[in-house]
Design a binder for these strands. Structure first.
Lengths: 367, 367
DNA sequence: TTTACTTGTGGAAACGTTTCCATAGGGAGT
DNA sequence: ACTCCCTATGGAAACGTTTCCACAAGTAAA
């Protein structure tokens, strides 16, 4: 009832020394049958359970892993975290979770705390893996760790999506569908090395396909309404026929904003997302996107950490190109093949006036 | 570099006793300016950081809170967990997260582990609050805790949605829209006291509105395809015009299944969900649902736990009726007012043959 | 000068474990 | 009867802290 029983209480109740209790309960070392019984009876009577704190102090091990991610409101991270948590739990480890909200100060503090708590390992997604105070701390303490979703700097292990290659594939898909003028939409560009990787990959892919370099639209508010941003963006780039959003939520928000502007997706504007969250399959039109397996990445990174701890050989990481695939969807539609001179393009099911779109925008704006 | 420095190393480096180091670093008790400086220099030189394990043992406090939820793949829990985590972090507490996957054995073990880890408090959603081994353990240890989403048994604190009242409100909304024959769709009915509450509330609400008692469809697989289930269900209940799904994911799955069966939502079948996840706003038609604020619940429950720990007065819980609201959406559509004798009903925008739907199903089945 | 009280300091106990070591008893081999 | 080696057991040290207490030295009041 009152204070929790300790091993001393058990020893006293069983009429033996604490060493004996420890040996019996941990099955380490000899004990007579009678003693064994007395100890177990005492445990039962006192409802005794070992204190992990005492154990940790003695064993210099906490069986706890720290996990740092930006936010679990994003299902990509939520899935990864859950996958990780399951692996850890099966291995007898618990997981300390800290969400940084994309704030690198919180990130640094979080890691400092985890180190102080003597976690046995750390699984983390940092804002910028090449420049992270927290990551440096972990390295200097030689803590077993793995990055997640970050591009791995030299000497670091990271379970991540091949952002660069995946984004290039998106460019290929736009090209296959005869899109030449595209835009790239990013949120928190500065705070995420992932978004930058995707942008660079997309730029490169566009170049490889002889497309116009993508126009960049960077938004910074987290609000779901991109309507105003999109309106201005499309006015500035009237010949744009497709947008690659750096994640699926942005893509879905873009579709809704387009709807607000009376722009038909995909007839007048094609959208491709990134991540492959389930929701993309539920919307109309379904979202064309890069499909990834966050859960597997989380699980793999966790296993890597465990093998770092145990000194066993880590699981094979998938090759960059196995970390993603293109998911076709209704939000990406072929354009009529363009003329070689790069003239105007039109949607395949002949839409009305190709200038329709911008007209709508201007008309809306004039109200 | 090698092993982490301890307070002894610092003391030795600074040429003083450990007590002095502790006093300086914690600003507890006196110390000469010169000593202070020497200690700080030593800390810097050795890159010293307190071990929380040693501290925990001494202070009998871990500044760690355990959190047990079924899964964070469901955004309802993810949001709640994130809200909780933020509150805890601000108060200087870390959060140990365990997902049970709706498995009560894992749930019990998880709680046992948390108790052994000496967490200072527990935030948890259990399968069945009236009958939970883990919850009993927490109570017997007198650990500060709060339930989350569970209906609170006697003497327990829970931050939860008024499931019963909310479900009754759904019945009201169906009634307002002239639906009389409805169904209730549940997943994991046995494993969730929430689903049962919602069912009971809906049954009561239907009765209050003189509607037919809702037909019950219980599915147990987690697969996203309900098509077969839905087909049989609608065959068994041909006059059914609306379905209340016990959560939004089920509702969305139902809409897609209906689409597979060539049943138009909402013209031929209205759907209402529960939870109010954001995705519901992104689909076409938008999902009518019960809107809840999981993040606030998580934050509130966390604050309650903190005040239990500190002995301060806990935050006010919202009254049952403030925990939810009805979110109108395109998936619920009015029917033409029915005749008093309870005859056939028809969708308000005159749809074709009212038997159309079942006909479609039979037709599809015959292929 | 004595007394009394402050400030600065370090030793040591305590927190709950595990594990090393010592000891006691007993059986088997000489 | 002696040694040798098992099994069973308990004492005590160690892990990294905090904190109680004792002590020394200095200062102010008597």
């Amino acid at each position: 009832m009152g204070q929790a029983a300790t091993i001393k209480d058990v020893a006293q109740h069983a009429g033996c020394g604490v060493a004996t209790v420890s040996r019996v309960l941990n099955n380490t070392g000899p004990a007579s049958a009678e003693m064994r019984e007395r100890v177990l009876a005492a445990v039962d009577a006192l409802d005794f359970q070992f204190s992990e704190v005492g154990r940790s102090l003695q064993s210099n091990t906490t069986r706890t892993i720290g996990c740092v991610v930006p936010s679990i409101e994003n299902p990509v991270y939520a899935d990864a975290v859950q996958g990780a948590q399951e692996v850890f739990l099966n291995a007898g480890y618990q997981m300390l979770l800290i969400c940084t909200n994309y704030n690198s100060e919180i990130e640094t503090n979080a890691i400092r705390t985890l180190v102080a708590k003597q976690v046995d390992g750390v699984l983390l997604t940092v804002a910028d893996a090449k420049n992270s105070e927290g990551l440096d701390l972990i390295k200097s303490r030689q803590l077993p760790h793995s990055l997640l979703f970050n591009e791995a700097p030299d000497g670091e292990i990271s379970w991540s999506v091949g952002d660069h290659a995946a984004a290039a594939l998106v460019a290929d898909k736009f090209a296959e569908n005869n899109h030449r003028h595209t835009g790239f939409l990013a949120l928190n560009f500065l705070n995420s090395d992932r978004a930058r990787q995707r942008y660079e990959g997309f730029v490169e892919g566009c170049a490889n396909n002889s497309m116009t370099p993508p126009a960049l639209l960077e938004v910074d508010d987290d609000g779901l309404d991109l309507t105003d941003h999109l309106k201005v963006f499309l006015q500035d780039h009237p010949d744009l026929t497709g947008i690659f959003a750096s994640n699926d939520f942005l893509a879905l928000a873009t579709i809704r904003s387009a709807r607000n502007l009376f722009i038909k997706v995909p007839q007048e504007l094609s959208i491709v997302g990134f991540d492959g969250i389930k929701v993309g399959l539920m919307v109309e039109p379904s979202l064309a996107t890069i499909e990834t397996a966050p859960r597997d990445l989380g699980a793999g990174a966790s296993q890597t950490i465990l093998s770092l701890i145990n000194g066993t050989s880590p699981p094979e990481k998938p090759s960059k190109n196995q970390t993603f695939s293109f998911r076709a969807g209704g939000s990406l539609m072929p354009l009529r093949a363009e003329s070689k001179d790069g003239g105007k393009v039109a949607a395949l099911p002949p839409s009305d006036d190709p200038t329709h779109k911008t007209a709508k925008i201007q008309q809306e704006r004039s109200t």
